[in-house]
């Protein structure tokens, strides 16, 4: 879990805070958990991801980020490493492989790095409208492929 948070937040201290707060939140929200809906592990990760996203989205006004910390050392490397670690035979991997690189990058950037449409556009040096379309079409293809 810490690895997921670290990958999104890029800072060890923030990642630890996120994991810790997720656990506390899990305790407090335990009564909302409905095991018929999904796995407990999935629920924990969802809480963690939401916590990280909240931190990221509020980063501008709430976290004083040293620009050096934000230096995204090779987003592509991080994303490729993640993709490479997906099981070769996993449906998600097989389907992601069928996507154009741009669509795949856009989707992985948002899930793994927690980027917004705007951030993806900035990193990929592409118009916002294109990024939104890549994501939409990429997700559509993934749905078709995975169904």
């Amino acid at each position: 879990m810490l690895g997921v948070a670290r990958r999104m937040l890029r800072r060890q201290d923030l990642a630890e805070d996120a994991v810790q707060e997720s656990f506390v939140l899990t305790w407090r929200k335990a009564h909302q958990f409905d095991e018929t809906r999904g796995s407990a592990k999935g629920w924990l990760y969802t809480i963690l991801r939401n916590k990280c996203l909240t931190l990221l989205r509020n980063a501008d006004r709430e976290i004083h980020m040293d620009p050096a910390d934000l230096e995204r050392e090779g987003d592509a490397t991080v994303l490729e490493a993640a993709f490479d670690r997906l099981d070769q035979a996993h449906d998600l991997r097989l389907c992601l492989e069928t996507l154009d690189p741009q669509k795949r990058m856009a989707i992985l950037s948002s899930y793994i790095l927690g980027y917004s449409h705007g951030e993806i556009a900035g990193r990929m040096d592409a118009p916002l409208g294109s990024v939104k379309a890549w994501v939409r079409r990429g997700l559509l293809k993934l749905r078709e492929c995975l169904s």
């Binding site: 810490l2 630890e16 999935g42 993640a82 899930y111 793994i112």
Partner: peptide, 23 residues
Amino acid sequence: ERVRARFAALDETAEPLSIPADF
């Protein structure tokens, strides 16, 4: 839930990190 489960494999690709002692 089905969509979440679909993407969950990506969570497993994160580097496993050890938790600090005072966690």
